[in-house]
């Protein structure tokens, strides 16, 4: 059995070469933000949508645009605004006066990579249309259903400040994102480099270095990465600790209103596999789980008012769980 894992490892060694090429191409445009870029790759490899949250000016949109350019794939940026309609997103039926028939006009969602910029600025019906497409991977216009392209990845951004006039995503819809990233400010050295790069007057642009076929092939390999039963039990321990903390020796029952859904377990194992792939490993270790657990769980653990009163966040709760659940 170990021989199989070893064989997968060798294939990973061979086929993961594009990762460093892709990272170095992105690095030409994006300074720092390695955490965000790595998570975007995890989303791409694990076939999971990513929600990026951060204050304005942290290169969220630029990172996604650069990734799409480096992958040489269809890319659509949709600026979510309060007057956006579902038809603006998925498409609509258009009447043709010449033929006297309705023809389908597909929306921008029919693309490989979608950047839903400031997703919380659009009303619920638009968010719902997008999130339904994300889940079903198909869109129905009129009476006809169209499958979406593969790879199909939604990378949404939202701004944690300026909440006035926004439509916060409901928990059920946030749950459909595999990862929720919280992007922070660059370091002092990184910001110095940003200043130097941007002061040249010539904005760096990434070139296509990876084909979508390579990504799809890598995805297949990621699915083959071995996950031991002990790791699966460890995932269940973490997820169940968000639902029944006291059963796992954590005095946090009154701090958690709703724990993580089964989708969390599914996404946690998928993201951990992708993380192992990026580490060029053919098996998942607890390190992979811990590396992605915060991004998978932070938007799935709903805290109580009591926790809020104690100035605790869902991230504090998840961190406590990760710190206190025994590693196999």
């Amino acid at each position: 059995m170990y021989a199989d894992i070893k064989a997968i490892g060798e294939r990973i060694e061979l086929e993961s070469g594009f990762v460093s090429t892709l990272l170095s191409e992105i690095d030409k445009v994006i300074v720092g933000q390695s955490y965000m870029v790595e998570r975007l790759l995890i989303g791409l490899l694990a076939d999971g949508h990513v929600l990026i949250e951060g204050v304005p000016g942290l290169a969220k949109t630029l990172a996604v645009r650069t990734l799409s350019r480096a992958i040489d794939t269809d890319f659509q940026r949709i600026q979510f605004t309060p007057d956006l309609l579902p038809a603006d997103l998925i498409g609509t039926l258009v009447y043709s006066a010449e033929s006297g028939e309705f023809t389908t006009k597909k929306g921008p969602i029919f693309s490989n990579l979608i950047l839903a910029d400031e997703i919380n600025r659009a009303p619920a019906k638009v968010q719902s249309a997008l999130l339904e497409a994300m889940q079903e991977r198909q869109v129905t216009i009129g009476s006809e259903t169209f499958p979406l392209d593969d790879p199909f990845l939604v990378l949404a951004t939202q701004n944690p400040i300026e909440q006035e006039g926004t439509y916060p995503l409901p928990e059920a819809q946030v749950d459909r994102f595999m990862l929720k990233l919280r992007v922070g400010y660059p370091s002092r050295d990184e910001e110095l480099e940003i200043m130097e790069r941007m002061s040249t007057g010539k904005e760096p642009v990434a070139s296509p270095v990876v084909s979508p076929e390579t990504i799809l092939k890598a995805r297949e390999l990621v699915r083959e990465i071995y996950v031991d039963d002990k790791i699966k039990q460890y995932i269940l321990d973490i997820v169940f600790a968000t639902r029944e903390p006291s059963a796992h020796g954590l005095d946090m029952d009154d701090l958690i209103a709703y724990g993580a859904s089964p989708r969390a377990s599914i996404h946690l194992i998928a993201a951990a596999r992708a993380h192992a792939f990026l580490q060029r490993r053919a098996y998942v270790t607890p390190e992979d789980i811990k590396a992605v657990a915060m991004d998978v769980l932070r938007h799935r653990v709903i805290i109580t008012y009591e926790a809020e009163a104690e100035e605790l966040t869902s991230e504090d709760i998840v961190q406590r769980i990760l710190d206190n659940i025994e590693v196999p």
Partner: peptide, 10 residues
């Protein structure tokens, strides 16, 4: 030991 525990290395 991680190899043995998580990668079925004997």
């Amino acid at each position: 030991a991680d190899l043995s525990k998580f990668a079925r290395h004997v």
